[in-house]
Computed example of a mutant assay.
Amino acid sequence: MSKPFDMELFLAAVLTGSHATRQRHIRQAKIIQAEISERWHRQTPWAWQKKHVDWFLEHRLNRRREATRYYYLLTARLLARRLQKTWVFKARLAAIAR
Rank of each mutant, 00 (worst) to 15 (best):
I36Q: 04
L11T: 05
I36D: 07
L9F: 14
T16F: 03
H19F: 03
G17N: 05
Q43F: 14
R39H: 15
L15G: 05
M7V: 11
L9E: 13
A13E: 15
R27Q: 14
I31M: 13
A12E: 14
I31T: 09
I32T: 04
R22Y: 06
F10I: 02
Q43P: 08
T16Q: 08
A20V: 01
R24G: 08
F10G: 00
I31H: 13
A20E: 13
I36L: 08
T16G: 04
A34N: 09
S37P: 00
E38I: 03
S37R: 03
F10S: 00
A34C: 06
L11A: 02
L11K: 01
I36A: 06
M7S: 01
H19R: 15
S18I: 04
A20T: 06
L15P: 07
H41C: 03
A34R: 07
Q33W: 04
A34W: 08
Q43M: 08
I26S: 06
S18F: 00
H41M: 05
L9R: 11
G17R: 02
F10C: 00
S37A: 09
T16V: 10
W40L: 01
K30S: 09
R22L: 02
H19V: 13
A13Y: 13
H25M: 08
A13M: 09
E35D: 08
R24L: 11
I32D: 09
E35T: 07
A29R: 00
A34S: 13
R27F: 15
L11F: 10
F10E: 03
V14D: 01
A13F: 14
M7A: 03
S37I: 00
S18G: 09
A12G: 04
S18Y: 00
H41G: 03
M7I: 09
L11I: 04
A12I: 05
A13P: 13
A20S: 10
I32A: 06
A34K: 08
E38W: 11
Q43V: 10
W40V: 01
E35F: 13
R27G: 13
Q43G: 06
R27K: 14
R39F: 15
I32K: 02
G17M: 03
A12R: 12
A29V: 02
Q23N: 11
S37W: 12
T16S: 07
W40F: 15
